[in-house]
Amino acid sequence: MNEITLISVVSLGAIGSVAAIILYMVAQKFKVIEDPRIDIVADKLPGANCGGCGLAGCRALAEAIVKAESLEGMNCPPGGNEVMKDIAAALGLEAEEQDPMIAVLRCNGSRENSPPKVKYDSHMTCAFAHSLFAGEGGCPFGCLGCGDCVVACAFDAMYMDPATGLPVIIDDKCVACGACVKACPRSIIEMRKKGKKDRRIFVSCINKEKGGPAKKNCAVACIGCGKCVKECKFDAITMENNLAYIDFNKCTLCRKCVPVCPTNAIHELNFPPRKPKVEVAAETASE
């Protein structure tokens, strides 16, 4: 009995030792020397792998930052300035202050504003619908309503509103990763500055057609009349291809352009309700 035990222990021990030596040698030979700072940076990133930085995932960003030894052009939209400052502190670098961004839907072609002219009956993805026709409402620029953006959102920050047929962005959950922007075949979603107190003003339309055809399909289309451009004192609004665009870097949120739009295509978000005319002027002056 003792003998058997002894033989087992010795032989197994020998096999184990040989295996350990081989393992050690292999591990030495194929050792990957990695900058330890990559792990430090990766730990600080949110780990959502959303791709908002433009790279394949959080680790890719960490590697890129460490390799570049600089934070220039690097940004983690979900993490925001805090995370970037944190990383900057850890690596002894300087972080650029980035304005927080948010996804904005630039189409208001709901079923009511742009009533369906045909019925779509195929695979419910915007990518396919876009290749097939202009859309149920007839607008070749408008939202197709199949929800590719909602599927693309990894943060549950979007849902389809069954009443309007348009996606809705939940501001609190949106981290501005830009996945929806890439998913939309018509580039309807735009990343815009979050704005002071979450206040935003934007043209909720990207239709580049002339006024007539645009208005025919949708009651709230930008018809390119240019009234907002004339109204704006800060040169924030430009008109190109029959479409007004508000530059969020120049816009002072005075919201004077909103009421002049004949089709209500300019939207204001998170502003207090408008008071009678005189006081509006007073308030904007105080801001």
Partner: peptide, 9 residues
């Protein structure tokens, strides 16, 4: 007449 249907081939 109801709306025309659009679908892929």
């Amino acid at each position: 007449m109801s709306l025309l249907t659009v679908s892929g081939s």
